[in-house]
């Protein structure tokens, strides 16, 4: 715990009710500790209260682990599934991403350090490609040797990738947040579940309907809404590139495939042990339960 992106005053230590803090960040977590944290997590909160709680929690990594209700043996179709296909000029899109990465030395200066704040406001230029991490999450990853995960290239908040904003529009998300999850060779992101906090935080920040809605700790979504994250490769899979959803693996992907997945409960992990970078478009946002994605329907798109 050498470096903090936030002043320690921002951490709410009243959340500490565990006997020995020195043991709390050691994998595998103590099952009884996880059960205690899960009890806290299940308490009723509004979305704003939840974001404040998790954002200032001293043990984010344990909260995330406790939030997973995944049971090994869950069918692959409930872990991840293809929900759509997009026909587009993927060669040009991928070439543009590749050039952007060359121009900005994203592969050669691959690093994942502590960051200062969430990216939820429009930005003119992107100065760092480090994805946001809660301190305790990054501490935990680094303790276990995961020092470089992936690089995050903004789409929604900048004006560099108009064609990707067109793709974002196809899905009609509220509070859509799109970025390129670009994993240079050697990157590895360990098993985790998400809260989709960046998109969720934007919605809470700007939309009182979401801020005041009840947070459902079982779906990990605002009541009446479904938080979605979809993944779209811009390049074909190369041997050595890995994407796991617990005991299930996604492989041999093609540009334009759209993957939906159980981000809330199914731990997922990525690694690039190949010799080609691995770019994925990641679109996150909110939909109503009547939306085709929430209903598990399929769509074909042509751009």
């Amino acid at each position: 715990m050498e470096k903090y992106k936030r002043n320690l005053d921002a951490i709410d230590h009243t959340q500490n009710r565990y006997n020995d803090h020195n043991k709390i960040h050691i994998h595998p977590y103590d099952p009884q500790v996880l059960e205690k944290v899960r009890e806290d997590f299940l308490l009723p909160r509004t979305c704003k209260e939840f974001i404040d709680w998790v954002d200032t929690h001293p043990h984010y990594d344990v909260v995330a682990e406790a939030s997973s209700q995944y049971i090994r043996g869950t069918d692959r179709s409930e872990a991840f599934w293809q929900c759509a296909n997009i026909q587009a000029d993927w060669q040009s899109i991928n070439d543009k991403i590749t050039k952007y990465c060359l121009d900005n030395e994203i592969d050669t200066k691959f690093d994942t350090d502590y960051t200062e704040e969430w990216r939820i406001y429009d930005m003119k230029d992107q100065n760092t490609y480090v994805p946001f991490r809660h301190n305790s999450e990054l501490d935990n990853q680094r303790k276990h040797g995961f020092k470089k995960q992936y690089q995050l290239i903004e789409v929604t908040l900048t004006d560099h990738f108009a064609e990707l904003k067109d793709i974002e529009q196809l899905f009609e998300f509220d509070w859509a947040k799109t970025d390129i999850n670009y994993q240079p060779t050697s990157g590895a992101f360990p098993r985790h579940v998400d809260f989709l906090t960046t998109a969720f935080k934007r919605a809470v920040e700007f939309d009182e309907r979401i801020a005041n809605a009840k947070y459902n700790p079982l779906t990990k979504c605002p009541e009446g809404w479904v938080l979605k994250r979809i993944l779209i490769p811009t390049d074909s899979w190369y041997p050595g590139q890995m994407f796991s959803f617990e005991e299930h693996f996604w492989t041999d992907w093609k540009p334009g495939q759209v993957i939906d997945f159980n981000w809330a409960h199914c731990r997922h992990a990525t690694a690039n042990s190949g010799y080609s970078p691995r770019p994925l478009i990641k679109i996150t946002g909110l939909v109503k339960e009547s939306h085709w994605l929430a209903k598990g329907e399929w769509r074909d798109f042509v751009l």
């Binding site: 595998p28 977590y29 099952p31 009884q32 996880l34 059960e35 899960r38 997973s68 209700q69 995944y70 049971i71 090994r72 617990e246 731990r267």
Partner: peptide
């Protein structure tokens, strides 16, 4: 309890 997808 639950630990990493398994009941313990």
């Amino acid at each position: 309890f639950l630990l990493e997808g398994k009941l313990i």
